[in-house]
Amino acid sequence: MADRSALAEFLRTRRNRLRPSDVGLPDGLNRRAAGLRRQEVAQLAGISVDYYIRMEQARGAKPSRQVLSALARALMLTVDEREYMFRLAGEHPPISGGPNRTVPQSVRILLDTLGSPAYVVDATYEILAWNRCAKPFIGDLDDHPDHERNMVRWMFLQAGDHPQWSDESTRRFARSTVADLRAAYARYPGNPALARLVTELLGTAPRFADMWNSHDVEVRRGHNKSIDHPDLGLLEFECQVLHVSDTDQRIIVYCATPGTRTAAVFRALATESRPSQ
Rank of each mutant, 00 (worst) to 15 (best):
A2D: 11
R4P: 07
R4W: 08
L7A: 15
R14F: 03
R15E: 00
R15Y: 05
R19K: 14
G24Q: 00
D27W: 06
D27M: 03
R31Y: 12
Q43R: 12
I53M: 11
R54E: 07
E56H: 09
E56K: 06
P63N: 01
A72M: 03
M76N: 13
T78W: 04
D80M: 02
E83P: 00
E83V: 00
E83K: 09
R87D: 04
R87C: 00
G90P: 00
E91N: 05
P94M: 06
S96N: 08
V103T: 13
V103L: 09
Q105G: 14
S106M: 02
R108T: 13
R108E: 14
L111V: 07
L111F: 08
T113V: 12
S116Y: 00
P117C: 04
A118Y: 07
Y119D: 04
Y119E: 02
V120T: 07
V121D: 02
A129H: 05
W130E: 04
C133I: 00
A134M: 06
D143S: 15
P145E: 03
H147Q: 13
E148S: 11
R149P: 09
N150M: 01
N150C: 05
N150T: 00
Q158K: 10
D161A: 07
H162C: 01
P163S: 08
W165Q: 10
S166Y: 05
S166D: 09
E168M: 00
T170R: 11
S176I: 06
D180H: 11
A183M: 03
A186N: 07
L194S: 10
L197S: 10
V198W: 08
L202H: 12
G203R: 04
T204N: 09
N213T: 08
H215I: 02
V217A: 12
N224T: 09
K225P: 12
I227E: 11
H229E: 02
L232H: 11
E238Q: 14
E238R: 15
V244C: 09
V244Q: 07
T247I: 04
A256V: 04
P258T: 01
G259F: 03
V265K: 14
L269R: 14
T271G: 05
E272W: 08
P275I: 03
Q277N: 10
